[in-house]
Design a protein around this nucleic acid. Structure first.
Length: 586
RNA sequence: GGCCCCGUAGGGUAGGGGAUUAUCCUGGUGGACUUCGGAACCAUCGACUCGGGUUCGAAUCCCGGCGGGGCCGCCA
């Protein structure tokens, strides 16, 4: 419990007591942070108006009259239908700072809930490198996972690897059959088309995707290749262990490259689950058997099975959700059902981070789970697609920006910045910090916007290091570290009498809100609140910094240094929650 | 054809029924400061897609246009 939470509790309790004394039971009392100057928490009285049959302002007036400021409440007033409360400023200062000092990097984190939460994210097909369109997925997913851990949950992150189906078979055929020189030529040509932003890389995903492109091209025109691939696909479907093994090995090679990319942006997943596993262990088959028994099931003349979802709110000309082909083999969605049932045995909550093209699929999945009698349902988190100013990303047309290229560019840019301001720093250290800054800029820029909004990728935004950016926040952290380094030994002091400047008070107020921001980001699945908060905190610190002397303070130096230390602690944690490093110098 | 998202200053973006000042960044303009690290600080300019409706009150909810995106496979 933080001071702010105690404060809100106290308000709710006291307002409720007064209402009960006035004969009103069971009235919902909501508290909210106020933007009004001089008001900390407000209770809007509008929603009580109907139940109490009184005007909002009259309710607020009545309550304000009965409530005597004591405890954490230092003042009460009624304005425009709001009951406004001010927290005892001394308690806020002392309570917030003491708690940060005591908990350190755990400030704002909740006690263990015992809840197991599974966050599936990324799960891109292992057929090519990750481009910035897809990058929204790992960045949102990883950030959400970090926020949920701070909410006290036991979080497992998971990547569902698609090693079944035509795409991976085509890839595998390409890797086995396309001559090295043809693939190399394709890679060079593709890089040239991308206009120099893209480089040839010796990395499995970039190497193998050339074979994949060539194979796809052959597939369009060459009958011999078409025959070979469909034969391979047939053997794959029939359970030919040789083909299955080859495909799996190819997918693993590709995945190795993808993992490298993810790791470069600080995304490490706890678990990789292979789609083919659900065929091998018979669980996809069991889903088929169970669905066939349902009253919604039916089959076409040639033997394909479906469930009709028209009673489940699925709209459109075709409400049939097919779960077996006419030859009896399973489909992607059938295996996805088995996958979700598996996840439910391992977790209490299951979150899927998905592109918005999966909306219908996800709804169908839920309906089918309902038919199967599942008590748990996945919670999908959808994000809209990322496009380029020139239009949709397309690997084939060369209209694509690979995440590896973006990272490289951002790091190079950060390196240039450091080099221009720091002549004293060793080369290796500059490189190290440039990586942290470049990656920070990218993650911050992408997590900044609400997932459901379309996102147009622009180099100048992604490489922006000013204002509302990762590097801005990192810079403030580095600056705070520098001050603490220079300060040397000091005695921690949280005496409110020494922290009564308006800039100090504002900064502390922002610090006090961190726990509620983590809650919104995690439980509310609103990860875009994190960069907004980080920027607000960093900005409040910069204002404080420009107006108040710390190292040269005549009085209250220790208290100010303590405030600097607390800010640094929270900045480091909010950055970490976004998967962004907090360098001590830059 | 049907369904689902989104539309906020020149560009980007927060708020997603309420407080006669709608957030933040960028951009423009103008400042302060011999700095505890200027990737900074201050001031100023500039916006709720349109039309109806619900409501004491709408950027916010409902209906309809317009614009952008997505989906409607025995693909994954």
């Amino acid at each position: 419990m933080t001071v702010m939470e105690d404060f809100e509790d106290e308000i709710r309790r006291k307002v409720s007591d007064v209402l009960k004394a006035q004969g009103a039971q069971d009235v919902q009392i909501v508290t909210e942070f106020s933007q009004m100057e001089g008001v900390d928490v407000a209770v809007p009285c509008f929603s009580m108006a109907k139940a109490l049959r009184k005007a909002p302002q009259a309710i607020a007036d009545g309550l304000a009259k009965e409530l005597v400021p004591d405890g954490l409440i230092s003042s009460v007033s009624a304005v425009n239908g709001y009951l406004n409360f001010t927290i005892d400023p001394e308690a806020l200062v002392k309570g917030t700072l003491d708690e940060i000092l005591e908990k350190g990097r755990d400030y704002g984190h909740r006690a263990p809930s015992g809840l197991r939460v599974n966050v599936e994210h990324t799960s891109t097909n292992p057929t090519g490198p990750i481009h910035v369109g897809r990058a929204r997925n790992p960045i949102i997913g990883d950030t959400l996972a970090r926020a949920l851990r701070r909410c006290g949950h036991e979080v497992t992150t998971e990547y569902y690897v698609n090693d079944v189906g035509k795409q991976v078979v085509v890839l595998t055929w390409g890797v086995e059959n396309v001559p090295d020189d043809v693939a190399a030529e394709e890679a060079a040509e593709h890089a040239a088309k991308a206009g120099g932003t893209e480089k040839e890389r010796d990395k499995p995903d970039h190497r193998l995707v050339a074979n994949y492109r060539v194979a796809n091209r052959y597939l369009e025109s060459d009958e011999k290749v078409q025959g070979e691939i469909s034969d391979m696909l047939r053997r794959f479907e029939a359970g030919d262990s040789e083909v299955i093994g080859t495909v799996r090995r190819t997918a693993e090679m590709m995945l190795g490259g993808l993992k490298e990319t993810l790791s470069s942006i600080n995304v490490e997943l706890d678990r990789y689950t292979w789609e083919s596993g659900y065929i091998a262990d018979g669980s996809a088959r069991k889903v088929v058997d169970d669905l066939k028994k349902s009253k919604y099931a039916g089959s076409t003349d040639d033997g394909a099975w479906y469930v009709d979802l028209k009673d489940f709110g699925v709209q459109g000309k075709n409400t049939k959700f097919t779960f077996t082909r006419s030859d009896g083999t399973t489909l992607y969605t059938t295996r996805d059902l088995a996958y979700h049932l598996d996840k439910f045995t391992r977790s209490d909550r299951v979150i899927d981070v998905l592109g918005e093209d999966q909306k219908l699929g996800s709804k169908q999945l839920c309906s089918a789970l309902e038919i199967l009698g599942s008590e748990k349902m996945p919670e999908p988190l959808f994000y809209a697609f990322v496009s380029l100013p020139e239009g949709k990303m397309s690997t084939r047309k060369g209209v694509v920006v690979y995440l590896d290229d973006l990272v490289e560019e951002a790091v190079a840019r950060a390196y240039g910045e450091i080099k221009s301001r720091r002549q004293d720093m060793p080369e290796e250290r500059m490189r190290e910090i440039a990586t942290v800054i470049g990656v920070g800029a990218i993650r911050y820029n992408i997590v900044r916007v609400q997932p459901e909004k379309q996102f147009v990728f622009r180099w100048e935004d992604a490489l922006n290091f000013d204002g509302n950016s990762g590097p801005y926040v990192q810079y403030v952290h580095a600056r705070a570290c520098s001050m603490l380094r220079k300060a040397g030994e000091f005695e921690r002091c949280t005496n409110p009498a020494e922290l009564d400047d308006e800039y100090e008070a504002r900064l502390i107020r922002v610090l006090s809100r961190y726990p509620s921001v983590l809650l919104q980001a995690g439980e509310g699945k609103a990860v875009h609140q994190l960069p907004a908060y980080a920027h607000e905190l960093a900005s409040a610190f910069n204002q404080f910094y420009s107006k108040v002397n710390v190292l040269k303070a005549e009085t209250g130096r220790d208290a100010r240094l303590t405030l600097v230390e607390c800010t640094r602690t929270v900045l480091a944690d909010v950055l970490d929650c976004m998967g962004i490093g907090a360098p001590e110098e830059m």
